[in-house]
């Protein structure tokens, strides 16, 4: 498998179109009652995505899967700014790291004082398949309005030993059991266009 770069898609008005992530920096602005969904597969280098929710009813969802192996030192940052009241955002990030790979994830939710009734969530989970792989996940919640709903969560660790053992105890070898659990970990997150690349990556490196 030849990795040529990171892969991105955006869904807007129910139309999915590719995003060019080669520059590593993207910013979006979302208008009244508009919804955008961004999907990215982060494989190499740095990626910064910034979204400004400009008018009431603006919504965004940022979904990222990152896969790192060997000695990769990767960076990912999501920044969502709720510039108007009643806007909502969601960040979902899932990572798998092998070998000596490391990842720095910075997820920011910024809600200025006048942006009441906003909803902002962030959830980050990563699986480390090697003792030498590492993740640093920093949630940055800058909330200045008092009537908002915000949450964030992060979990990083190895695959569940008991889940692996359960699969193995039914005759499934460790490699296949690992792939089954990783696939389950990323279930239904990415559009098919990205999922096929994830499957290829897992078949090759895990």
């Amino acid at each position: 498998m030849k990795i040529t770069g990171n892969i991105g898609f955006i869904r807007k008005n129910n139309v999915l179109s590719p995003l060019d992530l080669t520059g590593g920096e993207l910013s979006f602005s979302v208008d009244r009652d508009e919804t955008i969904q961004i999907y990215c597969l982060h494989l190499i280098g740095s990626l910064n995505i910034k979204v400004q929710l400009q008018k009431e009813g603006a919504r965004c969802s940022l979904n990222c899967v990152y896969l790192s192996h060997q000695k990769a030192r990767n960076n990912l940052s999501f920044e969502v700014i709720h510039n108007e009241r009643q806007t909502s955002s969601e960040q979902i990030v899932r990572g798998i790291l092998l070998d000596q790979a490391s990842m720095n994830f910075l997820g920011t939710i910024r809600i200025p004082p006048n942006s009441q009734k906003c909803v902002g969530t962030q959830n980050h989970r990563a699986v480390l398949l090697s003792d030498e792989a590492s993740v640093s996940a920093i949630p940055e919640l800058e909330i200045y309005a008092d009537d908002v709903q915000c949450s964030h969560g992060s979990a990083v660790g190895p695959l569940d030993e008991n889940a692996l053992f359960y699969l193995q105890s039914r005759g499934i070898d460790k490699k296949q059991a690992t792939q089954i659990l990783l696939k389950a970990f990323l279930t239904d997150l990415m559009p098919n266009e990205i999922q096929t690349v994830i499957d290829e990556w897992m078949a090759e490196y895990v």
């Binding site: 359960y166 193995q168 005759g171 499934i172 059991a177 659990l181």
Partner: peptide
């Protein structure tokens, strides 16, 4: 033998607390 080789050789453990596997 590894756990999967044991299973395929004919050993089966019915767990006291079967593990949940979300997404599988």
């Amino acid at each position: 033998l590894s756990p999967d080789e044991r299973a395929n050789s004919g050993v089966f453990l019915a767990f006291q607390y079967p593990t949940e596997l979300p997404g599988v």
